[in-house]
């Protein structure tokens, strides 16, 4: 349990990934942020986003998980559970 990542730190790192993927340095994400909130976040960008996250955090999401990410918080849940610093 001790090496679980802090949710805020994950959020901070994710924010960088979002800025990178969506090519917009002004994006600020929160746990509640969904695809509705970011203009270019369609199903194709979703996959690019997930793959970038997989690379950055060095984990692999299950196929079922990729489709079930309702918001940023859900992604943090998975990362907190599986990624180690």
């Amino acid at each position: 349990m001790s090496n679980k990542l802090d949710r805020n730190e994950i959020l901070k790192k994710l924010n960088e990934v979002f800025c990178d993927v969506f090519e917009d340095d002004d994006i600020v994400i929160q746990e509640e942020t969904t695809a509705e909130d970011i203009e270019d976040w369609d199903s194709l960008m979703h996959i690019t986003l997930v793959i970038t996250v997989e690379g950055e955090f060095d984990i692999k999401l299950k196929a079922a998980e990729v489709g079930k990410l309702v918001n940023v918080g859900a992604l943090i849940d998975i990362l907190q559970d599986r990624a180690t610093s």
Binding site: I47, I51, K60, L61, K62, A63, A64, V66, G67
Partner: peptide, 14 residues
């Protein structure tokens, strides 16, 4: 890459 084949029909690894 089975995950992305079953998730979104990507026929090869990214």
């Amino acid at each position: 890459d089975e995950a992305y084949w079953y998730h979104s029909k990507h026929a090869f690894s990214f």
